[in-house]
Design a protein around this nucleic acid. Structure first.
Length: 581
RNA sequence: GGUCCCGUAGCUCAGCUGGAUAGAGCAGCAGCCUUCUAAGCUGUUGGUCGCAGGUUCAAGUCCUGCCGGGAUCGCCA
């Protein structure tokens, strides 16, 4: 039940009846939304203005014809033309009240839609290098990607959560060598970790595991022989580490895709490059030296290039390094072709701020490998600055390790971590204040929203205590006399509830989960406000022993608020406690 | 130098992918606790939407050029 979608359909139908020749594409161009100024009415549409010009008519004439279609309609109490051609509707209370019943009937599914039409969408996120535990910088992208995935699933997309394991580069060799040092250390050698190696303690268990499995035998092998063995072991261990970190945040990927599987003879990279060559998209050539800071070891040479600039990138991009191995980008082209061949025409990549320069070539790659059939949206998560009591926080600890994702979650909890990271647009840098998210005051939005949910339960507990004879079962709530819900403060709440499905679809389409966080904060605020009204005016209290009928109607409203708060928080991966201790 | 992101109230930020008189929270000021958990609420002060042009019925929103802040810049991943 989406009131806005309901009116949108009705208006489109009316327009099609009035103007049979009207271009149907226009019928999806107008919007139905709550006007900024509530004085203008409950719903407003710009339909007349959108349609007027192509029809060669004045907006107000179109509006007048449209208004005539709604005269005497049961759903509306008034329809007015305003300003340059807006149409403002006042919706009958009965329709608003039916929203409460709809929330009750649909329960956890309230807000669900099928705008995705079951289309497969691949969301690649996190993809942190498998060289150690996740550090705090990865957290934002992890939470964002996960929330976006849940959101789009709820809107009817067939979502695959995917993690790309960068296990093919030189840093993995360094990782394996670092683990090998720990192995030798376990065997009794005194080891100094040289610069450029991974010094973290987290490799000690890997060394131990190698010692358990191979005793001392690896030590006497040449590196070429032990390296692949150690690499296999250490990669599995690191991935387990990362999965454990992610599960701390309640995040689980459907697919872990290894970059290594793309390499080698007959692998996807070779196939993809051969295919690109057939298309004439690969050539030998030179690039201009980059402006700005030029590396000392820059060497102008002829190289193998992909025609990225044919697809909107600024320059063509190198595919092969000077040592003959493939560039990261070459593997990434193959990887995205692989996604396309797996049936994904919609891809979303969640990347950190340092990858913003990568967007154009990625889009170029997707366009090229799909023949323009697939699209990719790259969502950049900007930096998070850690603060404590308003002061910048050291990102590295004494041991030299970075602050890890686990540190943050252990410090402030999953709910606070997730909500705070989602309570901001992804493309703006943000501050994360450790002290604030642990506060139990209204300044802390996580707490504020969870408190609203706990309050809905508290009201039911009170009702049970003070009116033991009252039947507050789901069936009784469903049968409540909703026509009693009429005061402005109540209608404000109901209107917000009615806007939930619309908020979900809009956030899905825009790939912006933060809108749900703001929505739920708004709903919590409206609920707290209504709750407080009962203090000044006892007739506005939810539970009133003198008025069982009214109490039941109000409880039905509270239950709807409870359900939507729960739905929205669940979507964000934040728990909704029934009681705050 | 190129590219991308940001610039909205003293501070932190929304602004529903072009709509009507630009909104919240914090801070400030003035109020509300023998409570349906005050862990909350009400009222109020505060704006040249960085600047200048352009597009149109309509621009914080789209385009161009500047200014300021951040990120990034052939073979790292």
């Amino acid at each position: 039940m989406d009131v806005f979608a309901h009116f949108s359909t009705r208006i489109a139908t009316a327009l099609a009846e009035i103007y049979p020749d009207l271009d149907r594409a226009l019928l999806s161009r107008f919007v139905v939304e709550p006007p900024r100024d509530p004085g203008h009415g409950d719903l407003s549409t710009n339909a007349a203005m959108v349609v007027a010009k192509p029809l060669g008519k004045s907006p107000r004439d179109v509006a007048a014809a449209l208004v005539a279609k709604f005269e005497g309609d049961a759903d509306v109490t008034s329809v007015e033309i305003a300003g340059p051609g807006f149409i403002n509707f006042r919706v009958a209370n009965g329709l608003w009240q039916s929203v409460i019943a709809a929330v009750h009937a649909e329960g956890a599914d309230f807000g669900r839609s099928d705008i995705g039409c079951g289309e497969p969408v691949n969301i690649e996120f996190v993809s942190a290098n498998p060289t150690g535990p996740m550090h705090v910088g990865h957290t934002r992208g992890a939470v964002f990607g996960d929330a976006l995935a849940t959101l789009m699933q709820f809107s009817g997309y067939a979502v695959t959560r995917e993690y790309y394991i960068n296990d093919a580069g030189g840093q993995v060799d360094v990782l394996a060598r670092s683990a090998f040092l720990r192995y030798r250390e376990i065997l009794g050698e005194v080891i100094e970790i040289p610069r450029g190696f991974y010094p973290g303690d987290y490799l000690v268990p890997v060394g131990q595991q190698l010692a358990n499995e191979f005793a001392g035998t690896l030590r006497w092998l040449p590196e070429a022989e032990w390296l692949p063995i150690v690499k296999d072991r250490v990669l599995v261990a690191m991935l387990d580490l990362i999965k454990a970190d992610l599960s701390k945040l309640g995040i689980r990927h459907d697919v872990f895709f290894s970059e290594r599987t793309l390499h080698g003879p007959g692998g996807d990279i070779e196939k993809t490059l051969a295919w690109l060559r057939e298309q004439g998209l690969v050539y030998q050539g030179r690039l201009e030296a980059p402006k700005g800071q030029v590396d000392d070891d820059y060497e102008d040479r002829e190289q193998t290039l992909f025609r990225a600039s044919d697809y909107g990138d600024d320059v063509d991009r190198a595919l092969v390094k000077s040592d003959g191995s493939y560039t990261y980008f070459a593997a990434d082209i193959a990887y995205h072709r692989n996604k396309y061949l797996r049936g994904f025409k919609h891809m979303i990549n969640v990347l950190g701020a340092d990858h913003s320069g990568y967007i154009k070539r990625l889009k170029a790659a997707v366009k090229a490998v799909s023949g323009g059939e697939a699209d990719i949206d790259v969502r950049i998560c900007q930096l998070v600055r850690l603060l404590k009591d308003g002061e910048p926080f050291k990102m590295s600890k004494r041991s030299g390790d970075l602050v890890t994702l686990a540190d943050v979650v252990d410090e402030v909890g999953v709910d606070a971590t997730r909500f705070m990271l989602l309570f901001r647009r992804n493309d703006a840098a943000m501050d994360f204040d450790f002290a604030l998210v642990k506060e139990q005051t209204r300044d802390n939005p996580v707490f504020y929203v969870q408190y609203a949910h706990a309050r809905t339960h508290s009201i039911f507990r009170t009702a049970q205590r003070d009116m033991p004879g009252l039947d507050i079962s789901p069936a009784a709530l469903a049968a409540a006399g909703l026509s009693l819900i009429v005061t402005p403060a109540e209608m404000e709440l109901v209107r917000l509830l009615a806007g939930y499905p619309r908020a979900i679809t809009a956030a899905s389409i825009a790939h912006e989960p933060h809108r749900i966080a703001f929505y739920v904060h708004d709903l919590a605020a409206a609920f707290h406000a209504f709750w407080a009204k009962g203090k000044e005016d006892p007739t506005l209290r939810f539970v009133n022993a003198e008025e069982p009928t009214m109490t039941l109607a109000r409880l039905a409203l509270v239950d709807a608020v409870r359900q939507v708060l729960l739905n929205a928080l669940t979507l964000l991966g934040v728990t909704a406690p029934e009681e705050l201790s």
